[in-house]
Simulated scan of single mutants.
Amino acid sequence: MGLAEELAQDALVAALEQWPRDGVPDNPGAWLTATAKHRAIDHIRRSKRLERKQEELAADLEVRQQAEPEFEVDEDLGDDLLRLMFVSCHPVLSTEARVALTLRLLGGLTTDEIARAYLVPEPTVAQRIVRAKRTLAAKKIPFEVPPEPDRAVRLSSVLEVIYLIFNEGYSATSGDDWLRPALCEDALRLGRVLAELVPREPEVHGLVALMEIQASRSRARIGPGGQPVPLLEQSRARWDQLLIRRGLTALARAEALGAALGPYALQAAIAACHVRARTAEETDWRRIAALYGLLGEVTPSPIVELNRAVAMAMAYGPAAGLALVDQIADAPALAGYHHLPSVRGDLLAKLGRHEEARAEFEKAAALTRNSRERDLLLDRAAKAGV
């Protein structure tokens, strides 16, 4: 793993030195790959600790390099980044380590962003990444495309990685931007490629459906000044109808495969309830609450219960939602999770308990790392205290 990172960095340095002078090549990614391959061969030749097998490998790499076109791209999985995700999600690693390592190396997320996505301390994620690298090195895991049976085993980890990348783009955990569109686009691209590669996997289509539908609301989620706009206050005329159609089509594919809906397909079905409603008032909140109930059975989580509490409040009144929130308020996974006091503040405000609501909004504002969201929560706190 360490050598692979060094070779990648060397190739990037070479690009920074040569491209300004010679121009950017037609296929930059293939140029970097070829450069890294050449440097790998040079490294193997120079090493004084080479054994016979390594010498044979170097010769084999050189023969392949001469026989193949200079910038030939590996099309085995259709997408280089997706191929590398399958490699990083190796079964010798725990699920948590696979996701953390892949997000860090290939997803573009910082250790802090991964930690907040998982609601765990940053040192924990850093340790997972270090241990994962050591494990891959100790086990001498090759950088190769996994065979078909292994791809199926690693699929759930790959889906989780793609989903977390999308989530970080959809609601940035820190910084001055509420959205990071490039991350959403990367996740959507990877999801669409994966759906073409494994068309009989309902959860792949479920994840694509979820991301397409969520992404359809992106333009409406930001106000003129860059401030977040809550779902019920968004202009539905600004929702992207093409993405909505793509999402509903992907959801229909997942449902048509006949298997029980998994967590991504269930979340997509929830998102579909919103986009099918012509107005916020027409939203079928009872169905959404029921779907969250099913989701909680498939993947029990206090975060799922928090979302179910919001749906319960919309369907049956704020008191019903607040009762559920109070039941999960002490869950360890929600400690430091700013959405908990945010939801509680909203429900308290609807019940007329304004001072309590103000305190909850202020608590949520102190916990969030996103400046746009902090401003929104502080504004709600000020209005709640009036």
Rank of each mutant, 00 (worst) to 15 (best):
V275D: 01
A11V: 06
H354F: 08
R308S: 02
H338S: 13
M1W: 10
A290D: 07
E55N: 06
A315K: 04
N27Y: 06
G247I: 05
A30Y: 04
A381F: 01
D326Q: 15
E75V: 14
Q65F: 13
V229G: 10
T368F: 02
A182Y: 03
A14D: 12
V63K: 13
C89R: 02
P28T: 07
R151N: 06
P147V: 14
L164N: 04
L188V: 05
I303C: 03
V229H: 11
A195Y: 00
S218Q: 14
Q241G: 12
K350Q: 14
Y170L: 04
P91W: 08
A59P: 00
L109S: 02
A335Y: 09
T33M: 11
I288N: 00
V343F: 02
R83C: 01
E144D: 15
P147I: 10
S88V: 04
S47F: 03
G226E: 13
Q227T: 13
T368N: 05
K133V: 14
D176R: 12
E297Q: 14
D79K: 02
S174D: 11
A256P: 06
P121S: 10
L183C: 01
T249I: 05
G223P: 10
N307K: 04
E356L: 11
A36N: 11
F86T: 03
L210I: 09
E72A: 15
R39S: 07
T102H: 03
E233K: 15
A260Y: 06
Q241H: 14
I141D: 05
V298R: 10
I288M: 06
G262H: 05
T111K: 09
L77V: 06
I288Q: 01
L183F: 09
Y337C: 06
I141M: 08
G23Y: 10
A290Y: 02
K48H: 12
G191I: 00
V145L: 13
A259P: 04
V229S: 12
E144T: 15
A40D: 07
N167Q: 13
V208Q: 04
A382I: 04
K383E: 10
I165A: 04
